[in-house]
Design a protein around this nucleic acid. Structure first.
Lengths: 342, 342
DNA sequence: TTGAAAGCGCTAACAT
DNA sequence: ATGTTAGCGCTTTCAA
């Protein structure tokens, strides 16, 4: 750890710090530093494992080659996967990722954004709580490189990468309807997230506009901080004393997981007595579950990659020219398995 | 984003930068700065949302309130959970986490460590590839705050937090034996990880020393970068043309997942024809899988918390006194489900 | 009690 | 072609 500094190189080689800095930043030629000097500097640096101090460099340049990522919860497989693809893509371009979880708290999110800015991240990718217009607007006003992921503010003109929530859920619900299911229950966490609203609308439109057999939507909303117990409790109300619905549509993977657990606990046969589908898969395990769960799959990797690409473009970090479209709604995939009655 | 700097405060208040810095770092009293000046400074700072620039502060103090976390892969639920608990615990203490994935590459791990040091993290938590003694030794020699997690170097005297791999696997295997299973196959990725070695030994001792019915160990090793296909292929060899084993013991959750997938694909009934157990659970879903999988559960949260606690202690960041034991082997939990034949 | 000034390590405008 | 110098914003020693 005995480090070599720019100064050391300059002294050893009898050149100025400037020269060294310039050369090591590939600006030797444009500053007409002799080839020989350049060679010497580069060789010396390499031989002594010189690495510029990141903080000093960042302080001086106002850039840190760091991307800030704010998500609800890194423990959740969905966000973990997103984080993974973001990290991988960022690493390819020489960026490091600093992540923090907001735990769905707008206040925490706000303070994290402040934190990240203070740490001079070069850009931000955030899966927002969507109750933090203030900061998002502030970032936009300042032209700070920003990409929203998974969750966007419909009223704000930001870059974003989301999936086709409406379409995915609409398709899934229609599939159930086509299988003759009538009383279909939509299950979601209690929140104002645009993504959930879209999923709901996709569901509702499917149900209400189903040709030949329109139906009333039925909804359950559970508390995010207590969803395991809450899902169980609310599902039970449809099952006892007598099962009175045909299917459940879960708006998130973990709700589907707990929902299935609850149904099993209540001895309700899926799909014989009641069908179910899930939006989003769970660690690639929903096909092993009994019954395998029909799911709407999100292109998680693509979301992460795309977000980074847009962000880098926004930061002007890439060689390539500006991307045309920085608002992306990615397609989802609908996988039919046994849980929906085929 | 129009920021207020230390200098601004000093100028506005007609005091020196020193005074401001001291007061804002709670060193006002010990430097005998008048109560009134202190009040003014603090008020002004608060009113103007002053936040010290993190890079500048870090550069100057050589500390950054940042913990570096290096893991094989953040997308993996196991490491995602660990990252989550580390982050949460670190946040409580005012630390931010910078994470990077090594993808099991010692070279990448090494460069990441260099990177992190260069970014002046105050301490490092690493789930090492275990093929990087060089850097670990270097860190130790320099007394750099370090905690190994999940994987440790048996030959090095570092701090670490791991689980009782031997004991967990031993217990699981014995359970199978007690159910009358004889030909039990151990499935692992091909690697020298100490954790896997311990799991293997736990398995082998159980099998070889089983009273009344010692048996030969049978092992399969699959390629990490291609485990899905490889597991499938190798399991097939035990199944076709004729099933000739009684049980599979999977040393990792994702192998168990793929193993089960493979068995299902081959139409082998679990647990009727062959039993199985898994080390580690998968996103809390192994109880929903058919059949529910008997698993050895790792105390993921505790691992993360413990690692942070040890690290902070190591960095001298906590008020509390030095911890006595910085080598922890945590207990695992053994959950019996249907997949092992009860 | 308070302030001047040096320094953390690097970058970049400006001279030479 | 190369070097001087002034920052980046904060901490901290030392002097007043």
């Amino acid at each position: 750890m005995k480090k070599v500094y720019l100064k050391d190189i300059a002294e050893q080689l009898n050149v100025s710090k400037t020269a060294v800095s310039l050369v090591l930043n590939n600006k030797g030629d444009e500053n007409k530093i002799s080839q020989e000097t350049q060679k010497r500097i580069i060789k010396f640096a390499k031989d002594h494992n010189y690495v510029p101090n990141h903080l000093a460099r960042g302080l001086s340049r106002g850039k840190t080659e760091t991307i800030g990522l704010i998500i609800p919860n890194i423990s959740d497989t969905f966000y973990a996967k997103i984080a993974g693809s973001i990290e991988a893509r960022a690493a390819q371009e020489g960026f490091t990722v600093v992540f923090s979880s907001s735990n769905e708290s707008p206040k925490k999110e706000s303070s994290l954004i402040g934190d990240m800015l203070n740490r001079q991240v070069d850009g931000l990718i955030v899966a927002s709580t969507q109750k933090n217009q203030k900061d998002i607007k502030m970032l936009m006003k300042n032209n700070f490189p920003l990409v929203l992921i998974d969750r966007n503010y419909p009223d704000l003109d930001t870059n974003f990468v989301v999936v086709d929530n409406y379409g995915g859920m609409n398709k899934a619900t229609k599939h159930l309807l086509s299988k003759g299911k009538k009383r279909i229950v939509f299950v979601a966490i209690n929140s104002d997230l645009e993504a959930l609203k879209q999923r709901y609308l996709g569901y509702r439109d499917a149900v209400e506009k189903f040709e030949g057999n329109p139906n009333e939507p039925i909804e359950i909303y559970v508390d995010y901080n207590n969803y395991e117990a809450d899902v169980k409790k609310k599902i039970k109300e449809f099952v006892e004393p007598k099962l009175n619905v045909d299917a459940f549509v879960f708006s998130t993977h973990y709700l589907a997981r707990e929902g299935l657990r609850a149904l099993k606990g209540l001895n309700v046969k899926v799909p014989e007595e009641v069908a179910m589908v899930s939006f989003s898969d769970l660690s690639a395990a929903f096909d092993l579950v009994e019954p395998p769960i029909t799911s709407v799959l999100q292109p998680v990797e693509e979301m992460g990659n795309m977000a980074v690409d847009i962000l880098l473009d926004e930061m002007g970090a890439t060689k390539v020219k500006t991307m045309n479209d920085k608002k992306r709604i990615l397609e989802v995939e609908f996988i039919v398995r046994k849980s929906c009655g085929s």
